[in-house]
Design a protein around this nucleic acid. Structure first.
Length: 411
DNA sequence: TGTCCACTGGAACGTACGGCTT
DNA sequence: AAGCCGTACGTTCCAGTGGACA
């Protein structure tokens, strides 16, 4: 037995002893499909009855599903499809399902590549024309006589990014098929996403519509309670903790995913502290941890020039300069590039980077008009300076510009 | 009331890259 | 090998603009 072995043994033993909190941690992950989804009976029934004709071999209507993040859309769809799939198998009907997150896929090509993959057609990740991939997909359906249910999650993200060309093709695909057919289920986080769609696409895609309202605090509580039963050991969770958790999540547009994350992280924190119960306090700590972890992760993985832009705003905040605009940020950005021996990007590009950082919630920007003094963006660093300092001091290249003293003055 | 600032943000285009088909 | 494709990341160009100021 080596010393290292001892240490590892210790860690693992400790872990096993520590696992007095969770019964099944996985049940708190957002991709877990529970056996019961509280407060979604209506939607489950609706979607199931729309898709039911598939069991008799005919095509189900296309469905468009709306609702904010964490309202159970994905869970309900996956739940219904899972049951449908099992039922179809019993009945000897051959059904295939394909779930695609459009935001993660990002482009028409990659969505199509995933569709091909789901019917066992191998497609290279680049090199082919999009039309070619579409043809292969269509042929695959035809030859194999597949009944394919396609779930396009976060469909709004794709349409906003690259338009609705692909959706148009997909909604028409059945027209050109003698064998095999598809049903589309579009899932959108954006209630106004319809406006981005061509009328023909819209009418075809939204043959049926299902809306998911945000959960109320008491509904979130029921959901958490249900999940807690399967995930936590008995008597571990303080009732007040559940209430606090649902209250936090209800304040953030009734996002159940957030609530479940909160509960899981709180449990993990308690576990690490060797606590035997998960109290309200752990929920509060979890809330802070989740936010901080998110920010740190974003800071670390940002492209180099975005980091420099961020450091530029950091220097203004450090110098107590509250009001800064794009021009100021760009001047300091150029100065920092010089320090790093880098060719600076154009102001137009930096302007886009600032917008991206705004979307990530790291910067806060506001378009203002200063009359005679032009139009620009007010920019505020939207995170604690210490967080940025901690993360970037450890990165060799960026640490050089963190402590650089700035020449530029904007007064 | 018109001017004009300091940008914004859309659009078109360029370049490099990996990888396909023929 | 030639010619094409999608993707990522960038540049260049430029019309548009809200409102302070003369």
């Amino acid at each position: 037995m080596t010393i290292q072995n001892d240490i590892l043994d210790n860690i693992f033993d400790n872990y096993l002893q520590l696992s007095t909190i969770f019964k099944n941690r996985e049940a708190l992950r957002s991709d877990y499909i529970p056996d019961y989804l509280p407060h979604r009976d209506e939607q489950i029934k609706r979607i199931a009855s729309i898709l039911a004709p598939i069991l008799s071999g005919s095509r189900g209507s296309n469905i468009l599903i709306y609702g904010k993040t964490g309202t159970g859309k994905t869970a309900v769809v996956r739940y219904v499809l899972k049951r449908l799939f099992e039922k179809a198998k019993e009945e000897g009907v051959f059904v295939k399902t394909c779930y695609i997150n459009c935001r993660l896929a990002g482009t028409d090509y990659r969505v199509l590549a995933k569709l091909c993959e789901s019917i066992n057609i191998k497609v290279p990740f680049t090199g082919l024309a999009t039309g070619e991939v579409f043809d292969r997909f269509k042929n695959g359906l035809e030859i194999n006589d597949f009944m394919l249910i396609i779930v396009l999650d976060e469909i709004d993200a794709l349409v906003k990014e690259v338009g609705d060309t692909l959706l148009y093709e997909l909604t028409r695909i059945n027209e050109g098929l003698d064998n095999g057919h598809t049903s589309l289920i579009g899932v959108s986080n954006d209630l106004y996403f319809k406006e981005f769609l061509d009328a023909r696409v819209l009418s075809s895609l939204s043959e049926e519509e299902v809306i998911f309202r945000p959960y109320l605090a008491n509904e979130l509580y029921d959901i958490l309670l249900e999940r807690a039963k399967t995930s936590f050991n008995n008597d571990v969770l303080v009732e007040g903790a559940l209430h606090l958790c649902s209250a936090f999540a209800a304040a953030e547009h009734g996002d159940a995913r957030r609530a479940l994350d909160l509960l899981r992280v709180a449990g993990e924190l308690a576990e690490r502290k060797r606590a035997t119960i998960v109290s309200e306090d752990y929920i509060r700590q979890a809330k802070e941890k989740i936010e901080k972890d998110r920010v740190v992760e974003v800071l670390k993985t940002l492209p180099l020039h975005s980091k420099i832009v961020l450091c530029s705003t950091y220097h203004f905040k450090k110098a107590n300069q509250k009001i800064i605009n794009t021009g100021d940020v760009y001047e300091v950005y150029k100065e920092l590039c010089e320090v790093l021996n880098l060719e600076p990007l154009t102001q137009r590009r930096v302007s886009s980077l600032i917008n991206e950082l705004d979307t990530l919630g790291i910067l806060k920007t506001k378009l203002v008009s200063l009359g005679r003094y032009g139009r620009t963006k007010r920019i505020i660093l939207n995170l604690p300076m210490s967080t940025l300092n901690d993360v970037y001091s450890k990165q060799i290249r960026i640490s050089k510009i963190i402590n650089h003293s700035i020449r530029y003055r904007n007064d």
